[in-house]
Design a protein around this nucleic acid. Structure first.
Lengths: 232, 232
DNA sequence: ATTAGCTGTTACAAAAATGTAACAATTAAT
DNA sequence: ATTAATTGTTACATTTTTGTAACAGCTAAT
């Protein structure tokens, strides 16, 4: 869950300073000297945020953002641009192209870090918020995304975060079988690589939590394929 | 439930930038290039807030607000004015005419969004809170916003300002889980950038204050998500 | 100027959750 | 029936998350 930040800055001194601050704040970073290298790196990795100097040799900030936003896969990465003072015209341009925030040079490291954290918080998908309060029900089992609670005939069930997401996923489409790979994609997301067998373990944990009321039978094994949520 | 914002700005670049930010923040917006168009649009629709550039061709900001305030039906719409630096004289004028807040150009989108949210919060007293009066009750716990007091079974509880706001926030929507980011947005509002962990600390302080009567159990942690106010 | 209260941040300990490996049990095919 | 593949179960080390206390800065009142 390490947060990675791409740093695009041609001035080596400033770049080093940025990296120092980022490292100190516990971020993982990737420093590059120009937009071209930045775009190239973006072809392989997806950072959580981009620090972008405005004045760059070759491809400049505007063009960089433009290309970034036009690539579906990485278009949603928030960008903070670094500007020298007296560039307020470019500032407006920058925002209209799609920068999310800016920091004036010279800036204090604490301020920069604060801006980064704030922007990350603002942009990261809030599952409880976006899920705008859904109530899923199946076979006497209720899952409420607002309160983040699961009840069986009114009785509360305790689930760990992953078990909750797992049940949520299955309850959205009962009767349908999923492979372990599909479950990993949907429930774990595009995090690091995880063993497929891990799904089995969490299925087990989910079943155990549902066991007291006998509802564990709803989580069914589809041999050679994966799992399914349904009534027998 | 969608919040609509009228944008009155003649510079197309800035206007685009404003719209981009607003869309990004989940607002519905209506961009117009001058005051006349703005007033015309106001004849048909009533936005929740108006972003108003100060320097406009034709009817200027002052006159715009004047006309706005003189029309009973739309007089109560909050206005944020956008000013270039060195217009502090106009600033005074602006407030005396009836602007509610101002933002200096150039400004960062997060700042603007924060100001907008703050103003909306200030002007549109949050739903159930003051609508139903100023009395919130849950599980023997009473919170009175008028007297700014909290009592448990008639016994008074001492809370610091932030603890009070925190409890107030949670009591408005019991049973619902919030992420730390959401809590920060709602309870701290527009203030500067604050660590998410700070929420934990204040949760702790609130719990401690409620501890003597055992009501601290109402403040529940939802592991991996955030917090919730509810009975077990 | 001094003080007391409030607040945000940080460090560290405790608790919970997670991924993985190992092994047992079950199933399906030969 | 034997075997190989698949799945269930458990234990355990690691990582992540949370609770708590301590600290320093700030504010408002005296």
């Amino acid at each position: 869950m390490a947060t990675t930040i791409l740093v695009v800055e041609d001035d080596a001194a400033i770049r080093d300073m940025l990296c120092f601050s980022l490292r100190h704040a516990g971020f993982v970073y990737e420093p590059v000297a120009d937009a071209e290298q930045g775009l190239q790196w973006l072809g392989q990795s997806k950072p959580d945020l981009i620090l972008l100097d405005w004045m760059l040799p070759g491809i400049d900030g505007i063009e960089f953002i433009r290309r970034l936003r036009s690539n579906e896969y990485i278009a949603d990465i928030p960008v903070i641009m670094l500007t020298a003072k007296g560039e307020s015209d470019d500032l407006v341009k920058g925002f209209s192209v799609g920068a999310d925030d800016y920091v004036n040079k010279p800036f204090s490291p604490p301020e920069l870090i604060a801006r980064i954290k704030a922007l990350l918080r603002r942009c990261k998908p809030d599952d409880s918020a976006s899920a705008s309060g859904q109530q899923l029900s199946f076979a006497g089992l209720d899952l409420d995304t607002q309160s983040h609670r699961v009840t069986i005939d009114g009785k509360r069930i305790d689930l760990g975060p992953t078990e909750f997401r797992l049940l949520h996923f299955f309850m959205k489409t009962p009767e349908r079988a999923y492979s372990r790979g599909q479950v990993l994609d949907q429930v774990w997301g595009d995090t690091v690589y995880i063993e497929e067998r891990t799904v089995d373990v969490h299925i087990r944990r989910l079943r155990k939590a549902l066991e007291p009321t006998g509802h564990d039978r709803l989580v069914q094994t589809v041999r050679g394929v994966g799992y399914r949520f349904a009534e027998d």
